[in-house]
Amino acid sequence: MSYQLDYLDQLEAESIHIFREVAGQFERPALLFSGGKDSIVLVHLALKAFRPGKFPFPLVHIDTGHNFPEALEFRDKLAKKLGEKLIVRNVGDTIKEKGLTEPKGKFASRNALQTYTLLDTIQEFEFDACIGGARRDEEKARAKERIFSVRDDFGQWDPKMQRPELWNIYNGKIHKGENVRVFPISNWTELDIWNYIKRENIELPSIYFSHEREVLEYQEQLIAVSSFIQLEPQDRIVTKSVRYRTVGDMTCTAAVASEAHTLDDIIHEIIATNTSERGQTRIDDRVSEAAMEDRKKNGYF
């Protein structure tokens, strides 16, 4: 018998170990679930970590109200199939309750407002750990974040005060009011995620595959036409074969032109592409070079 592990098996083993550390170290953890591919992979890994037992945490979705209907439908179906608890909290409610100002503009995104709802939800359920699907290859600030990332009462990330993280020992000790963001797939890349989805035959929302959609062509990006964006007479609206490479809000996630109907097609496309995931599809990261770093410092994921 061979005692060698393929790279996907190595990544999987590391992620399962992290999940079980969360279960062992925290009293009230939660898994932040968006309906996107990375959080779907998290759920798949959690099954491997805890079945035949139940998940030691609920799935929590911070719903901006601007999500793709396909992703929401998938979310509900998956939670039901697994028999796991799903908690949904709406950014729209927070805006009303707290009198927050709705962002304005053509692609008014509630992305930054998510942080308010997230912090309220953490407080409401007294979550001490929130598991998320962020990966270090996504963005420069994320490349420096720990797998167990301690946040203060305001959810803030202080990059200069991070705890050293050695071997595979994760220090999850915190004071009351603090919480830890845990990133079990930190060491996976976009391509690793797709290869794993294919190998494990993991089901995804349909919008990840090529489909016909009405889109607005805007500064070389393709934005889905929806009631959440403001259209103007001069806008160029076309119907195209597109798919989504990432799934965020309809207001700030761009589609890519694609004829990829299968996982193999998608993997080929990703290998051939010359643009990064966030660069191609996230409007919110283009604002400044340190956009993500700033949002994280303010309590974002």
């Binding site: 270090r136 420069k140 490349a143 420096k144 200069k160």
Partner: peptide, 8 residues
């Protein structure tokens, strides 16, 4: 460079 950065 202040901190450890991971690159893939």
């Amino acid at each position: 460079t202040i901190d450890v950065a991971y690159k893939y």
